[in-house]
């Protein structure tokens, strides 16, 4: 009796073990390709960049000329790189400051039932769908001094365009790039905000209307606060995109004129593939990575964590119940 019971337990236990192993193998089977790709295209390039950053390497032969942290010092002491960081931060701030209220206003407008709503939404979103390089080339041609459409339009109404053009004047170039970036990425903000607006319960608006709240009060006290998580997520995406900005700047100005639009990404490409200072480019890329990582983690901890904290979720639920 006892031995039979023991045998039965063994079988169950063996069955459990084999099932556990099967599960592990299944997970491994499905996870391995993704892990392999992640290792190949994310981990390995990061390790290579760190490795390159401590060598002087012109792109040929083995890595033999170890220079320690000298490349980092070169990058951090280079005014062009410091300016590039400032330009990136201006674009981070500028994008949020301009696109957030503009995107919100357009989203609120397009959230109303109106004629041509679908068409307007599409028009706003189309620039985001366009490839960045194509959009860049189109804007580059539009902004051509003397022969571009914009200068000609301005001329036709008696306004004078800048002598060196919108992209050729070091004082104006960065702001012009920011305008083009706003045109390109506003659609993303609008679509995300519109999606967020769909999740605001209709009853809240009805209750507010019954209480005699004005349209402005409804937006200020209901819509905007409940759209908070969407706006914070959008701002995070915008920030990371602005820190990594390359394509649009490269097409429009190449970082010029007089380095007035250089970003960290254009700096490292210029140092790497153009000047073959791969060590300096590696150091710049590591610094860019660290800056992006620190900003992302800080944002996650200080801003985004509000949306995931359990107490906040509970409090929100309670608030909703009270409102109901």
């Amino acid at each position: 009796m006892t031995s039979t019971a023991q045998g039965g337990r063994d079988k169950v236990s063996r069955g459990k073990v084999s099932s556990a192993w099967r599960k592990r193998l299944e997970i491994a089977f499905f996870v391995t390709p993704a892990l392999a790709l992640f290792a190949l295209f994310v981990i390995w390039p990061i390790i290579t960049a760190v490795q390159l950053s401590v060598f002087r390497w012109k792109g040929f032969g083995p890595l033999t000329d170890f220079v320690g942290l000298r490349n980092y010092l070169t990058v951090l002491n280079d005014d062009v790189f410091v300016d590039a960081v400032i330009h990136n931060l201006i674009i981070v701030g500028g994008s949020i400051v301009v696109q957030l209220p503009l995107g919100l206003a357009i989203a609120l407008l397009l959230n109303r039932k109106m004629w041509g709503q679908g068409l307007l939404r599409t028009i706003i979103f189309v620039p985001y769908v366009l490839a960045e390089v194509i959009a860049g080339v189109v804007w580059f041609q539009l902004l051509q001094p003397q022969y571009g459409v914009i200068d000609n339009l301005l001329g036709s109404v008696g306004l004078e365009a800048p002598e060196q053009g919108w992209l050729g004047d070091p004082e104006l170039a960065l702001w012009t790039v920011l305008v083009v970036l706003t045109w390109k990425y506003l659609g993303l903000a609008v679509i995300l905000f519109l999606a967020g607006l769909q999740s605001v319960p209709e009853e809240l608006y009805e209750a507010a209307q019954l209480d005699g709240a004005t349209w402005w009060q409804v937006q200020r006290t209901i819509t905007v606060p409940l759209l908070g998580p969407t706006m914070r997520t959008w701002a995070f995406l915008s920030m990371i995109g602005s820190l990594q900005l390359f394509d649009m700047v490269w097409i429009l100005t190449g970082g010029g004129p007089a380095n007035s639009t250089t970003t960290m990404a254009t700096y490292l490409i210029n140092q790497g593939t153009q000047s073959q200072n791969f060590g300096i480019a590696g150091a710049a890329s590591v610094i860019l990575f660290v800056i992006a990582l620190v900003m992302a983690v800080l944002y996650q901890q200080l801003v985004l964590s509000r949306d995931t904290r359990p107490d906040v979720v509970t409090r929100k639920k309670k608030t909703r119940e009270v409102i109901r």
Binding site: Q144, Q146, Y147, E163, L167, G168, T253, P257
Partner: peptide, 15 residues
């Protein structure tokens, strides 16, 4: 020089 020469490309396109 031509207007906007600081951002004029060398050989790409008519401008």
């Amino acid at each position: 020089f031509n207007r906007g020469f600081l951002t004029t490309p060398a050989q790409t396109g008519p401008t």
